[in-house]
Design a protein around this nucleic acid. Structure first.
Lengths: 255, 255
DNA sequence: AGGTGTGAAATCTTTCACAGCA
DNA sequence: TGCTGTGAAAGATTTCACACCT
């Protein structure tokens, strides 16, 4: 059970201005591409576990829900990692993507708010399994502070700055009720966290150098509802074809 | 605590081919616009509760995390609802959006998988509050089947087709482990569900007329990790300015 | 003045289609 | 022969900037 990709149709600019780093080819890597790279990485992991050593763009794309041209273009931003006439080496491409997605440095994740949703997130095996072990938990509720969830002790939100700064937390997740989110966000920023995944239905104000991604389930449902409503307008699709497939956080265009 | 918008950078086509409905101006409404409409709707609700009667595009946009030009363009797809020199009437714009987003017909939601995440989703107040009451719960686990969550009895997945068809379920949410997702999806489709929100990290195969949106938390985290890794390359941003704001499921470009 | 609605320009993404290496 | 890598075309989205109503 994974959760949400920023339903994300949008995204202001691409990775934009990455200040001319230094020497490597450091191509821009479009924002749209980044989220797909994460998907390819998951699929590569599955392929590898299945013992597959090589994949063609066609196969990898199919398993990822995109078309092969897009996949090849996406990978091309990282440089040439395939072999013409053959395909990609699963292991090495996986390694390349892990590096690109920052999976070589360990990412320590802090989760604030262990109520309903937060508790579920804390216990979500998919995180640890994918290299994002939740290493710190916080809440304001005295009934929750002090308990252990999956071996992690829940601490009071007032300790956020200290624990995050001291523990090298790079990513913060906010799963508190809306009204508490901004204050929690400020504490995370104080602790040096520059990347935040926000589940609260509010707009967070942050300094320029902090990145926030928002995950809003009701928005997802409303987008679905919109299409439900649309279908009632006129459809008359002969229930013929089958094979459809989903697309990342986006709608499967019922072309 | 809301959840995820399909991390969504993507989205094949716009609402595309809506077969010439009949008479109204039924404009295309770009897919990217749809998810923002949901955000505006939430903000309008807050404004209304606060007693605000009129908003300018500048204000509504600010509170929604977009710029005013985008907001005006988005609203223009629905027709003219503002008054020049004044702004928009909160109540009537809210009504218009609700209609457009299918919030006038009641949307019955079925949730499959009440484990860790599913349980949290079932109890998420934001759903009912935003017009998406979860009206049916399913699981395969005999220890869960039969219990009540928020007043809803958990039923066995085998009953999905019957319950969905009989209960007029329009939206299904899948919060099962990956391996079970496809089978569950097939059952939902059998029950006539045409809109599915998938939290399982797998690509669902569905008939053409069924829409799937996927929400993948690990993808979100990896996108954040990517940017964390980027920052280590070169940044040298003077920690000057403050006021940033998040953008829907997308990255706040640290321009 | 003040603020909406909207062509037209600028961007970002996706798709085509094919040259070129294995 | 098979499949990658990629310019160039096509599309979608965002941003400009300004005419036009109140």
């Amino acid at each position: 059970m994974s959760l949400p990709p920023a339903t994300g149709p949008d995204g202001p600019a691409a990775v934009a201005d990455a200040p001319s780093d230094g020497d490597r080819p450091v191509r821009p890597v479009p924002e749209a591409t980044v989220s797909r790279l994460a998907v390819y990485l998951r699929v590569l992991g599955e392929l590898r576990e299945a013992g597959v050593e090589t994949v063609s763009s066609e196969e990898l794309a199919g398993a990822s829900g995109v078309n092969s041209a897009k996949l090849r273009k996406d990978l091309s931003y990282l440089g040439s990692y395939g072999v013409r006439g053959v395909g990609y080496d699963v292991a090495s491409l996986q390694g390349r993507l892990q590096g690109e997605l920052g999976m070589d440095h360990r990412q320590a994740v802090a989760l604030v708010g262990v109520g309903n949703l937060g508790h579920a997130l804390a216990g979500y095996a998919g995180f640890a399994g994918r290299g994002f072990p939740v290493s710190a938990l916080f809440d304001v509720d005295d009934d929750l502070v002090g308990i252990d969830i999956n071996g992690i002790r829940v601490r009071h939100v007032r300790d956020i700055p200290e624990v995050c700064a001291g523990g090298g937390v790079t990513i913060g997740m906010i799963a508190t009720p809306g009204p508490a989110a901004q204050a929690v966000c400020d504490l995370l920023v104080q602790g040096g966290v520059q990347s935040i995944l926000n589940f609260a239905p509010v707009l967070l104000q942050v300094p320029e150098d902090v990145e926030v991604r928002k995950v809003d389930l009701s928005v997802e449902l409303q987008v679905l509802a919109f299409h439900v409503a649309r279908r009632h307008g006129a459809d008359g699709q002969a229930p013929g074809a089958r094979a459809g497939s989903e697309t990342n956080g986006s709608v499967v265009s019922p072309r």
